[in-house]
Design a protein around this nucleic acid. Sequence first.
DNA 1: ATTATTTAGTAAATCGGTTTACTAAAGAAC
DNA 2: GTTCTTTAGTAAACCGATTTACTAAATAAT
Lengths: 347, 347
Amino acid sequence: MVNKASDKLNMRITLQDVADDAGVSRSTASLVLNNNSRISDPTRERVLNSVKRLGYIYNQKAASLRTQRSNTIGLIITDITNPFYAELIHGIEVELKRNGYIALLGSTADLIENQNDLLRIMQERSVDGIILVPAENTTIDAIEHLKSDVSTVLVSRYLQGVQVDYVGIDNELGARRAMEALIDKGHERIAFIGGAHNSSARQDRLMGYTSILEKYTLPQSEQLIMSTPVTRSGGFKAVQSLLRMENPPTAALCYNDVVAFGVMLGLRQAGLEPGHDFSVVGFDDVEEAALWSPSLTTIAAEPSKMGEEAARLLLHRIQNPDETERQIIMPSTLVLRSSVNIRRTYI
Amino acid sequence: MVNKASDKLNMRITLQDVADDAGVSRSTASLVLNNNSRISDPTRERVLNSVKRLGYIYNQKAASLRTQRSNTIGLIITDITNPFYAELIHGIEVELKRNGYIALLGSTADLIENQNDLLRIMQERSVDGIILVPAENTTIDAIEHLKSDVSTVLVSRYLQGVQVDYVGIDNELGARRAMEALIDKGHERIAFIGGAHNSSARQDRLMGYTSILEKYTLPQSEQLIMSTPVTRSGGFKAVQSLLRMENPPTAALCYNDVVAFGVMLGLRQAGLEPGHDFSVVGFDDVEEAALWSPSLTTIAAEPSKMGEEAARLLLHRIQNPDETERQIIMPSTLVLRSSVNIRRTYI
DNA sequence: ATTATTTAGTAAATCGGTTTACTAAAGAAC
DNA sequence: GTTCTTTAGTAAACCGATTTACTAAATAAT
């Protein structure tokens, strides 16, 4: 008597078993599964019956060894507990499912070593394509090299100087809109809080921030620009240190919603009421943003739609490897809620 | 000149190429990669050099066709945008990574058809094991059948009457603790809000709810027990309908945190202040729970730890197919925060 | 010096599908 | 009635690794 483990292995019904059962050759059985018109209806019927009767499970691995396609893609993000990415993944999944694909998932924690590991692991598993939110310090070379090996789509963060498919929003425009809203309410000392140093998303948002300050000749200062981990506690600590300045800001544009949530908590901890004493704007409009109290003013990125778009783009790329790369920039609209209000003096 | 697509395929370096380059047989090259001691150090060196020089990428698929192991597992949850699952996935990923595994991800939206599709897709890709949050209406038979094909661990929801590995919390005890806390503050009419009808987690929580009502001989009513989608808007609508009762409750035990967030929003929409006019308790203690205003009283499930535990259990099961199944019940502790307060009359 | 054992490496079968080139039989064309 | 097509199906090579059984050379044992 063999053990349970090998039971499981030995039990697996192969296409040969199906063919034998149906009284045809393995080739015929394979052609049936692939809906090849060369097989007559009665034979087809017989094979399909055997498939059902024996409980045959298709072996995608064996097939893809030959066909060089796995109907599996790799999905690499930085942090799944960030709701922006959770919603992004959801959108990607929906679109993949429509097309019979499924994703291998990995998070990098924004560390390049993890990203390299994941890229290797996924390529070893012959994914047909990769959707990547590039970790901080990802090099142009790395992306060039990657996309020469496997179809690749970047999401949310871009790398200047590479021709590669990309889906994102207009970060600079979004930031400008957010800033105009704050200035409209009378704010003049406005901080920029959060984000990993070298991400394109942050740089673009920062550029929008700066350009509006210049446009209105408002005070600029290195001290008003803070780089933090992209977490609630990152925002929490940053705003508290800002409040200790001699001449603190009255409003903040945050790198994203998660950081903004942290900022609002930090304000309250410091005895200030967000939206009343201090205005806050986020970025992304994750589901939760509308639900906070005060509800968060933010730039809507529609992460779920972005995901669908990215998946669509990748599947298209897999089908058409030779087309020129496309950059899809989705609109970044301001959603004005109660975390932004008329400036008051609180000191 | 071939096109780019076939370039990508033709370019892939095989172990044979490596062997040729190193002047050894394919078998030797393979043995080197698997750290077999039969190969001498100089030869090993030569092979590894060729691997690096040619940029060889191991073909896990070809290997696993032979070895019957893929170092890949399937991970099926109901909804990734629920932070409980996002944190659970994070924990799973961490533990998998430690052991050189990676996960195929799929969400069911709690629909059995989706679950069946995903299970098939994952088995076709020969995952070594599956971590499953069973969708509503999953049958005992389905699980029995599944675990006879592939190592399986259930998380968060259990199915009565199947011997299968499981990681979860003590839902009934947690619910009892939550109820005691509410009663301690003087609440007598307490609702139970949310959750899919047939999930074991809900039934156990409900049992704890009922048993405490009985213990204190407090009013029980079908109308106080509501089943909703596990979403914010599910909780939002449910509490509003409860408030329209002639004799509405003054507190609610919610199926989980996400539903509780919806309930708090619904209260505010109805002009009531959660924690002040109406007490709310959640379940899970997702990161966000501490950050709400009012902060949410909840039963801590430590989703990330649960994930690690589940992954550990699955990997153990894969190694030891014949051991008896284990059920890991993690402690469910009450985290008392400001959403629970002394009962007031608000009508 | 001869035999036994160990060491280092290889040839070939194998995993489970796909796909190309081929064939036998039936039908159409003349 | 012969030849030409078409139809329906099959044999066998192939994808890229692993692994077993084998061999030649080197070393140890007697």
